Computed example of a mutant assay.
Amino acid sequence: MAWSIYQARRWIVNEGNGKGLVQGVFDAAVVWEESDVLLFHRRLAAEGSSGPGVYCVQPAIEGVPFEAVYRDGVLTEASALSSRLGRRNVLGSLKTILTVPLKVERESLYGKAPEKMVVGGVVYLERKALRVLNADRERRGDSLYPDASSAGADLFLAGEARHSARVPFNVFFSLIRVPDDGASLPSSLYDRLLQLQGWGFRVNRPCMRLCRSIEEVLGACAEICEKRSELPYDITGVLIQPDVVASDGWKEEGSGDTGPVLIYALGPEPGSARPA
């Protein structure tokens, strides 16, 4: 039987040193220790869930996770998850972000886009934008946002489209699902992200890594940790996913199993408090 992320969650929390679970576009087990990344790899290898042991690695960006539905190339639905507000319809707000395609050309040099597809990613604020936003709030005597997630929850999730349109939100897309109706996608997650980019979706190409061994995964984690202060956005850790996509798992409401997902949470930057 295939190993689901729910089994991964139970195993890491019970047997490893996991500190929690992130729920959003996908369910991701969260660990702080390098040894737990190795345990994750060994368990996947034992279950045959990681294919040849190749992983797609990229930063886990601080922000609001979302899913969007495209039908016949047109953005028709969008929702986001919040622990405080639950699932919210964010179609209007998402349409105000300039880097979100409102329409996708179904015929292109990068292949034919599926008739129906769900794409997911994260809405975020760059550090500079958050500083400007907080400076304006301070002048008005309002409370400051401690991080991009708090700002996103208030202005993107809870706010109206006319409010979020005034905030320079940006997005990165990190997944795609299609229904089981004959539509086909590459079996490689990395190749899927490149195809998404070809269709006009913004992916984190500069920071994406295709790692062909667990040693390369750990090296990519170390590189991202070392350069995190140079990134224009805040990150919570490193997103680690097997490159082989076993199943699209798409359902009409846009939910589905994306396979095992791990977030290797990075230690705090100098001068900041470690998350509880």
Rank of each mutant, 00 (worst) to 15 (best):
L102Y: 12
D181W: 04
D181T: 07
P186W: 11
P101D: 12
L189K: 12
P146I: 02
V171A: 09
A161W: 09
R127V: 04
D181A: 04
Q195V: 00
R140V: 00
A151E: 05
R137W: 09
R139A: 06
V119G: 10
S187P: 06
F169P: 01
S143H: 14
H163Y: 04
V118I: 13
Q197M: 05
S188H: 02
E160P: 04
N170Q: 11
D191P: 04
K128S: 03
F173R: 03
D191V: 04
F172C: 05
G111F: 11
R192S: 01
S174R: 15
R192Q: 04
D147I: 09
R166L: 00
L144K: 12
L125Y: 03
Q197W: 05
I176G: 05
G120P: 14
R177Y: 01
S184H: 15
A148I: 00
R131S: 14
P186Q: 12
A153M: 13
E160G: 07
D142Y: 14
E138V: 03
P146K: 11
L98P: 11
D180Q: 14
E105G: 13
N170M: 07
A161R: 15
A129W: 09
Q195D: 01
R127H: 12
L102C: 09
K116F: 07
D181V: 00
R166I: 00
S184C: 14
S188I: 02
A148V: 05
G111K: 15
D154E: 13
V132F: 05
F156R: 13
L194N: 09
G120K: 15
R192Y: 01
P179C: 08
D147W: 14
D154A: 11
L130D: 08
K112T: 09
L133D: 03
L196Q: 15
E107T: 10
A113T: 04
L109G: 13
R140F: 01
K116N: 11
